[in-house]
C-alpha cells in the first residue's frame, strides 16, 4: 500500500495517476469501490474506515488523503473529533505503508520508502 497525503488541491491525484498510468475511472471514491480499484481518493471523508478490511481485500492500493489537521482547532466537537480521527488513521496507515509521500504544490516529498516509485 502506498499513502499520499498533502493539503487540498496540491495535485495528489494527478501525481498518483501519472505514477501509476491509471485513468480517472480507476479511482475509487468509497471504501466499497476501493476493494477492487487501484487508487482510493478522498480518504479524509472516511475517518472511520476499517483499514484492516480494506488492506486484506486490496493490499496494493494507493490511498490519497487530504491533510486536515493543520488549521485552527474547530469550536464544534464533532469537527474536532473528525480531524483527530483522520490524523490517527493516517498515522496507522503510514506505519503499514511501504511508501508515504507528501505532495506540496504538485511536488512530492518522500517520507517513507526506498528508491524511486515507477
Amino acid at each position: 500500500m502506498i499513502l499520499l497525503i498533502g493539503g487540498a488541491g496540491q495535485g495528489k491525484l494527478d501525481y498518483a495517476l501519472e505514477k501509476t498510468g491509471y485513468g480517472p475511472e480507476q479511482v475509487a471514491r468509497t471504501p466499497e469501490e476501493a476493494r477492487t480499484k487501484p487508487i482510493f481518493a478522498g480518504l479524509e471523508h472516511w475517518p472511520e474506515l476499517d483499514e484492516n478490511e480494506l488492506l486484506a481485500a486490496n493490499p496494493e492500493v494507493v490511498l490519497i488523503c487530504d491533510e486536515v489537521g493543520c488549521g485552527v482547532v474547530p469550536v464544534d466537537p464533532a469537527q474536532r473529533a473528525r480531524r483527530e480521527q483522520v490524523g490517527r488513521l493516517c498515522c496507522r496507515l503510514a506505519k503499514r505503508a511501504e511508501r508515504v509521500e507528501r505532495i506540496f504544490c504538485g511536488l512530492p516529498m518522500v517520507l517513507k520508502g526506498e528508491g524511486p516509485w515507477n
Partner: peptide
C-alpha cells in the same frame, strides 16, 4: 521544537 497537525503523532 516539535510541531504537527491534529492527530499527527
Amino acid at each position: 521544537l516539535v510541531s504537527g497537525g491534529a492527530g499527527s503523532g
